[in-house]
Design a protein around this nucleic acid. Structure first.
Lengths: 116, 116
DNA sequence: ACAATACATTCCCATATTAGAATATGTCAA
DNA sequence: TTGACATATTCTAATATGGGAATGTATTGT
């Protein structure tokens, strides 16, 4: 069996550096395909192909206006990725995070002191 | 050109569902290869191959003990992924996150009131 | 209608992949 | 030493890929 299709899930979709660039570029504002190609110095057909993958996984949205198409990142679609990564936060060695974690645990305990 | 090598970066490494499973399994505790194979119902050679990718990207660490090898997730290696995903937090539509964001911005402003 | 513009798609190709089977390597135990 | 056990590697086959070039399609302007 080969690798899973990029269109199957966001983890595969963001495995490609170009696509991560595109997502970053399209997060704050929508852009046309041509704009993206110029901004990232990628051939237009290549941009279209990456956008296809991103669109099929719901990572970008598209709006037609005449012969131009405006794409924009749908950041909500990255939520699952963020959550998956967050499940490992508790195992980070970084002290600040461990402190934050303890503080949150303490706050949680304080809220239900008799919950043995 | 084909897709980038899985060994090149963590984004490619975690694109494979099996490897995400392994990372999740090995986050709280180390396990031997055989344990992993049984726990996830994967053939042993397959586990070894996935571990090779994970190890080469620094996502797991290995400890030899006799003929057994204990692997464990190195959660710190997932930090870059978490950070990348976090850059999109400000674009989430979720209200709770937006509120938190505004609160943090306000706190930041309060700390330096004259910093025009 | 026709040319120009903006995107999308198709074809080809070199390459990286995953699973499975078989095999190799290394370590322990009798 | 020899066999059993734990893991790693090699080989094969099927498949998905991304870039480049060429082409298709839709929309605009004259």
């Amino acid at each position: 069996m080969a690798r899973a299709a990029t269109t199957s899930d966001i983890f595969n979709a963001i495995a490609e550096p170009r696509r991560r660039q595109i997502l970053t570029l399209l997060a704050p504002q929508e852009r046309t395909v041509g704009d993206i190609a110029i901004a990232l110095a990628i051939e237009q057909p290549s941009v279209s192909k990456h956008l296809r993958v991103l669109h099929s996984t719901g990572l970008v949205r598209m709006r037609c206006q005449g012969r131009e198409k405006y794409y924009r990142t749908d950041a909500d679609a990255l939520h699952p990725l963020h959550e998956w990564a967050a499940t490992f936060e508790r195992y980070w060695s970084n002290h600040l995070h461990r402190i934050k974690q303890r503080a949150e645990a303490a706050a949680h305990t304080a809220k239900r002191p008799s919950n043995k």
